[in-house]
Design a protein around this nucleic acid. Sequence first.
DNA 1: ACCTGAACACCGTTCAAGT
DNA 2: ACCTGAACACCGTTCAAGT
Lengths: 206, 206
Amino acid sequence: MARDTRAQLVSAAARLLDQGGPAAVTLREVGRLAGVSHNAPYKHFADKQDLLAAIASRELTRRSAIMADAGPASPVERLRQIMRGYIAWARAKPARFKLTFGAWTRGNDELGEAAHLSRRRLIDTVAAAQAAGELPAGDPDRLAALFLALAHGAADLALSGHLSAPGKGSADPEDLLDDLIGYLRGNAAPRSGEEFANPMTAPRPA
Amino acid sequence: MARDTRAQLVSAAARLLDQGGPAAVTLREVGRLAGVSHNAPYKHFADKQDLLAAIASRELTRRSAIMADAGPASPVERLRQIMRGYIAWARAKPARFKLTFGAWTRGNDELGEAAHLSRRRLIDTVAAAQAAGELPAGDPDRLAALFLALAHGAADLALSGHLSAPGKGSADPEDLLDDLIGYLRGNAAPRSGEEFANPMTAPRPA
DNA sequence: ACCTGAACACCGTTCAAGT
DNA sequence: ACCTGAACACCGTTCAAGT
């Protein structure tokens, strides 16, 4: 019962967040949607910040689960897929995206755990691509951070309309991701027999 | 007198923003700091959103002015300098940085103008680096967007603590910027006599 | 043209009770 | 252990006046 109320509160808050941003997440409306009084949330969360943090935590947990669903493609294509998913998420749920990467004054262990799991998945995929000779060698943490920073920045700038000039619509986040992968492939030491032509038709390890 | 009041209101609002984020920018406190009543701002701005937009606009205008001060370094080093300045700005004034790239429902021509000028400066520098053979050829708008997205994403993730794992502090935004430039240099078609060794000692066009 | 003071509706948070 | 209703302080915004 209690756990159910808590989950319903988070769900209601996320819905309000999607509709009108953090300002639309009023504890009164959250309570109403969840069928409780306007200050019942205080029995489950310290304050409004804590409720918002719970949304971010749930979001990160869900995303790390989605990242596990990468298909049987080559490592670098799995990486492209993960990053495209990240960008698509930002476009579909901009308010959740912004919230998740807002500054968290409070520590919130749950949120830190979820973030760590997501990062781990990403780094592993990058390392696999390096091992396959699809990406240049080097610290996989560092290269993963490069990918994440590019995808995050492209998505965030696209949301605020600052990525490309109003007239030209040529620079989509996905395009920039493809560009980066292309440049990095040019720097990778190809393993014997690999050509790096079209990424979609490139040979893949079994 | 009127223009002076307006400027003072923006200045006071920016100060409050730095101290405690958008929530700390209350019209009552803004008025108090500017020496006017708590609703005098409504004679200069349509509402609170409009006042915040004025801060963002002022910020973009200032930044495009700073970008003009690039020294006599080679194009690619000027580009590195511009991007480092961008990252340093985000770190020094995180609230202004976040606000400037928040979603602007209203059009706000002044803000669009300032953004366009900044982008123009960046694209020109990228094009110059391409012409000097320091960066790979291609649409300079697209390559400029790649740099901007990386710097923006790295800075934003660093602010929220999501760039690198809590333990390792090795992935600074500046490091990722240097990494990207390094990878791109590897793909540039060097002009005769240029070696691309240490960027700081690389030959520069007169 | 610019500013003030009072007023309204709304929100986060607290508190004393209730089961 | 979880929830409710009343209450408080605060904020954005509006309005009727003032110069």
